[in-house]
Design a protein around this nucleic acid. Sequence first.
RNA 1: GUGGCUUUAGCUCAGCUGGUUAGAGCAUCAGAUUGUGGAUCUGAGGGUCGAGGGUUCAAAUCCCUCAAGCCACCCCA
Length: 423
Amino acid sequence: MAPVAKRPPGTQDILPADRPYWEALEAAARDQALRFGYQRIETPIYETTDLFVRGVGEGTDIVSKEMYSFSDRGGRSLTLRPEGTAPIVRAYFDAGMQVEPQPVRLFYIGPFFRAERPQAGRFHQFYQFGIETIGDASPLLDVEAIVLGWNWFAGLDIAGVTLHLNSIGDEVCRPAYRQLLREYFRPYLAELSETSRARFEKNPLRLFDSKDPQDERLKHNAPRIVDHLCGPCAEAFHVVKEGLAAQEIAFELNPNLVRGLDYYTRTVFEYQHESLGGAQNSLGGGGRYDGLAAALGYRPTPGVGFAMGMERTAIVLKQSKPLTPLIPEVYAIALEASDELYVFRLASTLRARGYGVIFDPGLARLDAKLRKAAKRGARVALLVGPEEREKKQIVIRDMHSKTQTSVAERELLSTVVQMLGAR
RNA sequence: GUGGCUUUAGCUCAGCUGGUUAGAGCAUCAGAUUGUGGAUCUGAGGGUCGAGGGUUCAAAUCCCUCAAGCCACCCCA
């Protein structure tokens, strides 16, 4: 009979063989975040749809075509979260964090959902490690976020990451720049690709997102926003660049980096890695979002943060160093049915002392059981059969040296401690 | 939403121009004189050859339709 279901498109099972990479990623994330004073937060997997429509922006790709939205029984429109920043800003105000000492530093690790066509490094359900610093506009916090992300990669021994940096201005300087951009592109309207023509109207900044070779040429000579920042934006960007230089973090000024979410202001950045290919080369990215809180109907509050792609980083990590799952060190074998409960109890005794023990159920030839123990990677095998029962002893076998001793039950623990060390 | 490629055992694949009960390697399990291991040898289980339809005496193999998966575009994590 055919199975009733398989894995839904765009999802993946993270199997035991891959979990060590994920655990390394998570451990490094926790470690770095805590060192900088970020505290973990988890928001719901779904939110009110409007949170994203208003926060991320109506015209963005995410909102216009990538959201998993559904109605609950009361007819409310809910959406599986496509990104983490808007929910965290919402939680910040819901929990009254604006009365805490500012800024508030938060981090999260969890799944997100976007209904794009899946491909390498891109999934319907994907995981992000992200941080948000809310309540202070200092550009040094931009630097802090970038450094934290940089340290995350470094702590994982991931080489080959390049930092791309840009500033996209704010409500003061961006409107004028937008006009300038329109004037520049207007004569070439007919030559632009179809999507670029649509962006010309809605959001000319995103003309820079185009990879159309035709548009590429035009982009090259277009006015760059970093040359048209207002005073405060230019000053902030200067501080960011100086801060990164002081941290000896190399960055590449990338005037094409504009990012697809509406809420970004001033600093935007992306960590890229060549081994992921041209398309999904972004391991993560972020920026400042000083207008987001107001767009969501809260008191204007500045913020900055990033989101890292866990599966993409896992791919890179896997290439740089192999990791294997943790395996129990003791393998417990009974030779006859009448010994099984006794061996089961021995296993419990050792577990209570902190050792990992696999109990091998059922009856089979001893060599078959030892074969399994070896394949499982056990360092020690416990063995009880008729002979041991007779002599009230337990055979403890060192799987590496292939030597073994018989001990009384009261000596079991001390012998194991001697062989494996205390737990 | 658009395009390309792929679809044969749990996994990786072979099956040439259509011809009897569909194969290999790996993995699993079992045995190799009966209580000692990751090797070797032997053997076993496991497949409606993605689904449906068509051509033919005969189709995994040719034709059509559909589906799924992967990759790419768009964009992003």
